[in-house]
């Protein structure tokens, strides 16, 4: 019962974060909302695994917890350099 209620509360928090993602106004606000959404999703997945009695869902939560911040760092790089490769040199123009 309480597990279910908590899960629903977490889904509601997702919806609230979605509002900020839509409202913006700046791109950074949207990224912040996506980040928050990711964290809440990790919590949702863990809770849902418990609710349905399948704790092997935790691997998915681990994936998100481990690699969800890569996108944010990519955005940082994008703003700093205009592309994804810091410290570019003419050498990189060669064949890949």
């Amino acid at each position: 019962m309480i597990i279910t209620a908590t899960t629903i509360a977490i889904v509601i928090a997702m919806a609230i974060a979605l509002v900020r993602a839509y409202l913006g106004p700046t791109t950074y606000d949207r990224i912040l909302a996506v980040n928050l959404f990711g964290t809440i999703t990790v919590l949702f997945i863990s809770m849902f695994g418990f609710m349905t009695g399948r704790p092997d869902f935790l691997d998915i939560a681990l994936v998100y917890a481990l690699i969800n911040f890569i996108a944010t760092i990519a955005v940082l790089k994008f703003f700093e350099y205009g592309d994804l490769s810091p410290g570019r040199t003419p050498e990189q123009e060669r064949d890949i």
Partner: peptide
């Protein structure tokens, strides 16, 4: 691949 991409993003493509 995400591990390598993280490395590439922070330390550079070279």
């Amino acid at each position: 691949a995400a591990g390598f991409i993280l490395y590439g993003l922070i330390y550079g493509l070279d």
